[in-house]
Design a protein around this nucleic acid. Sequence first.
DNA 1: AGCACGCCGACT
DNA 2: GTCGGCGTGCTC
Length: 730
Amino acid sequence: MPEQSPIYRVAVPSPLYSHFDYLPPAQSREKLVPGARVRVPFGRRAVIGIVLAAADRAAVAREKLRRIERVLDEQPVLPQKLLALLAWAAEYYHHPIGEVLAAALPQWLRAGRPGEAPGVEVWRAAPGADPGALKRAPAQRRVLEALMAASDGLEAETLAALTPRWRAATGPLERRGFVARTQRPCLPPYREPAEPGPTLNEDQRAAVEAIVAGFDSYGCFLLHGVTGSGKTEVYLAAARAALARGRQVLVLVPEIGLTPQLVARFERRLGLRVAVLHSGLGDAARYCAWRQAAEARTAVVLGTRSAVFTPMPDLGLIVVDEEHDPSYKQQDGFRYSARDLAVLRAARERIPVVLGSATPSLESVRNAREGGYRLLGLPERTGVAALPAVRLLDMRRLAADEGLSHPLRTAIAERLARGEQSLLFLNRRGFAPAWLCRDCGRVAVCHRCDARLTYHHARRRLICHHCGAEERPPEACPACGAREARALGEGTERIEAALAKVFPKARVVRIDRDVTRRQGALEEQLARVHAGEADILVGTQMLSKGHDFPNVTLVGVVNADQGLYSADFRAPERLMQQILQVAGRAGRADKPGEVLVQTWHPGHPLFTALVNHDYESFLSYALSERRDTGFPPYSFLALLRAESPKNGTALEFLRAARASAGAPAGVEIMEPAPAPMEKRAGRWRAQLLVQSTSRKPLHAFLDRWVPALTALRQARQVRWSLDVDPGDMY
DNA sequence: AGCACGCCGACT
DNA sequence: GTCGGCGTGCTC
């Protein structure tokens, strides 16, 4: 019998819901391994794909098959286990396998670069280099001076931060012999011995013991610890135990929580170099760290969302810190939840996973109460004061000037008198969220979105926070010609200005995206706060993540009501989490903190729970509401979104989608509806919610529905995407 | 998504 | 007379 040459199933980076079959490369006789990259002809071009499997028959006629052009890897870049997880994820999230694999691979590998780990480029000044000789080349001069000031040389990334034209500068400098380029391994050795940590309290010890007892088998632990209860110490102790067994540890943190301080703490306490993975890394540095993990040369990986896909052959423990954080859910393209995939990965690898939070998500709480998660509680704060007292300020009865009520001002004044810091939290950047004509009341709106423009005073601009559009405030009202306008409402910028007026001697530091956009600016602002160079902090939710402010004894929540009655069913949960997170930043053993919340709805059950520091009663309230309304975690959702530059076509597509769905058993398909903000960035958006009380019928339905959607005539005129387990309804 | 093919309007 | 607009079809 003649030997049939094998066929290879290849995932190709394209939004097509299937793999593609190829013949083996011309002269090779060796079998290709799944997970290896191959260069294949695809349509009229060539692309880098990933071998999924060998097969003996193709899905299409044999004449249609083309040959793999080139094999890029002898060893798979994605190990079997990870490939299987990704294939599962592609099915679960109903996303094309090629794009799923692309999301898991570092750009370096996607671009077809060699699999061997690159070093990190380091530039050094040569002895005797003379910046004086560079009078007419200021960029070169700046680079050279920076290099001369740095004894150990500088990495490409540091230079890039210095000047965007650094590449153009190093070239001539190198030719003149003023600077030299070297490579170093991306993770330099860590030479300090591990620092001992504090003695664990009873609860922490119990938590660590429970996790360690479960090593070598799957278990999901929900570590519910109030802020300041020492969750990180539990992670560290569990990580040490895993390391002692020769296993690797994967730690996921929210986007904004991955700070140099956190990395340094892990390195110090574990006594080893930690591989860091986050979006701000350059291609080479990122791939290098990834590769170190894949070769088990580094034991600990600390990363954001996409780090859940890091290959780690000896993985023995996964930690998901702040598991409730929305940044674990990817909001475009392949819309996965890194937290959920971490749990799944742990189950498949038969290892424990720890989900930690002071304010766990309702999903995880329900899983702990009724599902298989084990709850580990840390009710005590360590080394910090008792939880700060929370007081509601009933804004129905209080006058507020520029958003600040009298009691809040008094409380700030007291802190100033005592030399303590105050923190004002307000989830709205800019000066004022509305700009209106004094005469006719016309409000400035965005032309591309269904949204009001926010007035930014420093830049004297009206800015749309949804599409980024900017314009100059009009001299005269376009509707009535009146020449006077009014900025209505408060953003962080206005609060900052108001504070400067009321407390002229106070040093106010603002922390929001507008201030911290520049690289390193956030770090600078925080350093000022910690050095005691600030009396009052004003900021958005950026303040609620990852940074502690031990000298802050007053937290003011300026407008707590946004999100209380929002279109998004998760908004109250987010609000509660944000307030508790920011409240948890305040106070110390010797200086108890106080939290003042300005609200027009002081009777809301959310606030009752907040005043009592009773997350449990909030959970009961929120869970019973979700049960009554049939929302997660008491149901499972999929949201079909569509958008089009033409009004109406998105809804039209959804109506056709609804019609093609039929009446599947056990699944409820809602009516198509315009999105809560129908027009955004010039596109009309609509959505269609699909709901079920159990996953099985929902996914059985989606399996049939998605191919049908692709075939719809209307699908061509819109951009559509399916969001399984959506994080929000916008 | 790319990329090409294909058939109708304003320009060197 | 062409350059180029984006509708439509295909990718093993």
